[in-house]
């Protein structure tokens, strides 16, 4: 990798705007995420954090501004969109595992059909990642037979099988029962420690403090404040940030 490439941001949003009808959901969003950097995005519901995340892999379309992923600009160009989706993995709040396929089949689907990997190689890869999320014994089960925490870990493994450069997490633990949150967060911490570039939308502030390089606070479609975790939690600059932190930390999410 050249110096230029190493210094180039992995993800860059420049003055991104988006409307849903008359309602503005993203207002002048600018953000740069470097290679290997871990970003946690937080904020009240309706602040646009999920929308911003989903714009990065084109699940939503941004209307103004530019988005670059690993140097490739996200436009209406179908080829570029496909290329970006290959490099960006996403984990959803509702897991979204394919119920009609086994865990193993869920994982090998994309490598086989998108990367044209031979089946045996794909299965070996899948088992490797299943082991990494500590769930390899469930390979032949169907998603409905697993607990929520197990399903989310499978979802993480499924995204990882495409060997993405970047992982996006959209509130990955919000739909889980409390006793299962830890197993998923542990996997995410391991992933962070292995050097993966991550953007995480979450309410789990303990996780954020442990893993994040950068905290981003969004409210009503705008980025209000960005800061490293220490500065963010101890000396927030904006009043809105202070208000949000006081609400969220009071209820023990810290």
């Amino acid at each position: 990798m050249s110096d230029g490439e190493r210094q180039r941001p992995m993800i860059e949003l420049r003055h991104v705007h988006k409307w849903f009808g008359d309602h503005k959901v993203l207002n002048d969003i600018s953000l740069a995420v470097g290679r290997g950097e871990r970003v946690v995005v937080c904020g009240p519901s309706g602040s646009g954090k999920s929308t911003m995340l989903r714009c990065i892999n084109r699940l939503e379309e941004h209307e103004q501004g530019q988005i670059f992923v690993d140097g490739i600009e996200l436009t209406r160009d179908v080829r570029q969109i496909e290329a970006i989706r290959r490099e960006v993995g996403m984990v959803f709040q509702q897991f979204n595992l394919f119920p009609h396929l086994t865990v193993l089949e869920n994982l090998v689907l994309a490598p086989i059909w998108v990367r044209q990997m031979p089946r045996r190689e794909a299965e070996a890869l899948a088992l490797q990642y299943l082991e990494r999320v500590h769930i390899q014994e469930q390979a032949q089960k169907y998603p409905a037979q697993l607990s929520g925490g197990q399903q989310q870990r499978v979802a993480i493994a499924r995204a990882l099988c495409m060997k993405p450069q970047i992982m996006l997490f959209d509130e990955p633990t919000s739909a889980l029962d409390p006793e299962m949150i830890k197993e998923v967060l542990d996997v995410m911490v391991e992933l962070a420690q292995s050097g993966m570039t991550m953007i995480c939308v979450t309410h789990e502030m303990g996780f954020a403090r442990e893993v994040a390089d950068l905290m981003v606070f969004m409210d009503r479609g705008e980025i209000v404040e960005t800061a490293p975790p220490d500065a963010f939690f101890t000396t927030p600059k904006s009043e809105r940030t202070r208000l949000f932190l006081s609400q969220i930390l009071r209820h023990g999410a810290g």
Binding site: R14, G65, Q66, F68, G71, T75, R76, D77, V78, R79
Partner: peptide, 22 residues
Amino acid sequence: MTTRAEGAPGRVAPWNDERMRS
């Protein structure tokens, strides 16, 4: 990486443009 004017969409080959294809 080339810099572009802010707000203007990049030049996309028409046969790859998803709106054009549609």
